[in-house]
Simulated scan of single mutants.
Amino acid sequence: MNKQIQIQQPTAAFVGASWVALLLGAAVYLLGLWNAGMALNEKGYYFTLLMYGLFSAVSLQKSVRDRLEGIPVTGMYFALCWVSLVVAVLLLAVGLWNATLASSEKGFYAMAFLLSLFGGVAVQKNVRDLAQFKDEPVAETEPRAEG
């Protein structure tokens, strides 16, 4: 059974909203860290979690999309993407649970983190969709014959 996948070009509003979600979520999270009265190593922990979370979320989205389009993705890499995303979210939850922050601050960091992850996934999806409407190759599934 040959599935034909039709990709529609994302609207400018969705592309803009995706970028706003990513940039606003990350900027607010980082601004909160900058102004926080926590030790530098604790700030580094939360910064690293944001970077790790963004990478793992975008990598998972790309892997899901690759599989959908018939581009090979090993099961091991796919599983590692899922594990990485879950670990990043769990590490944030454990860090916030044990932090000596007000509940409102904990919620602030959690929501900014999750907004950043959503924005990162949406931006990556849009970049990939828009590349198909320009003459930029995303990836080839079969080698081209020279001739």
Rank of each mutant, 00 (worst) to 15 (best):
V87H: 08
A21S: 10
V127D: 05
P72Y: 05
V15L: 10
G119P: 00
A17G: 07
A26L: 06
K43R: 01
L96C: 01
G119Q: 05
N35H: 11
A139Y: 07
V86P: 03
L90Y: 09
A17N: 10
L49F: 00
Q9H: 05
E69M: 13
R65M: 06
L24A: 14
Y46M: 12
G119Y: 02
Y45I: 02
V87A: 11
G107C: 03
W82S: 04
L96Q: 00
K125Y: 07
A17I: 13
N35D: 12
G75P: 04
T48A: 07
V123A: 04
L101Y: 06
G37E: 11
A88I: 00
D135E: 09
A112C: 01
P143C: 11
M51P: 05
A131P: 01
V83M: 14
L30T: 12
G53D: 03
Q61K: 04
A13H: 10
G44L: 10
E140Y: 13
D66M: 04
S59L: 03
V86F: 01
E146A: 13
K3S: 13
M1G: 15
D129C: 14
T11D: 12
P143W: 02
G44S: 15
L24Q: 15
T141V: 14
K106Q: 08
L68C: 04
G120Y: 01
Y109G: 01
L80R: 03
T141C: 06
L40E: 15
K134R: 14
G120F: 03
G75K: 10
S18I: 09
W82Y: 11
G147L: 11
A88Y: 01
V121A: 11
V86Y: 01
Q4H: 10
E142A: 15
L22Q: 03
A93H: 15
G70M: 02
S103G: 13
L96M: 06
E136N: 08
S59G: 09
G25L: 00
T74S: 04
L50I: 00
L90C: 03
G44D: 12
V58N: 00
Y45G: 02
G32V: 06
A21F: 00
K125V: 02
R67C: 03
L91V: 09
E140V: 05
T100E: 12
L31V: 15
V28D: 03
F14W: 06
I5M: 05
A13M: 09
A26N: 11
L40A: 14
K134G: 14
N126D: 11
V73G: 04
R128M: 06
A131F: 01
A57I: 08
M1N: 12
Q4T: 15
Q8R: 12
L23F: 07
L115V: 08
T11N: 14
Q6D: 12
I5Q: 13
T141F: 04
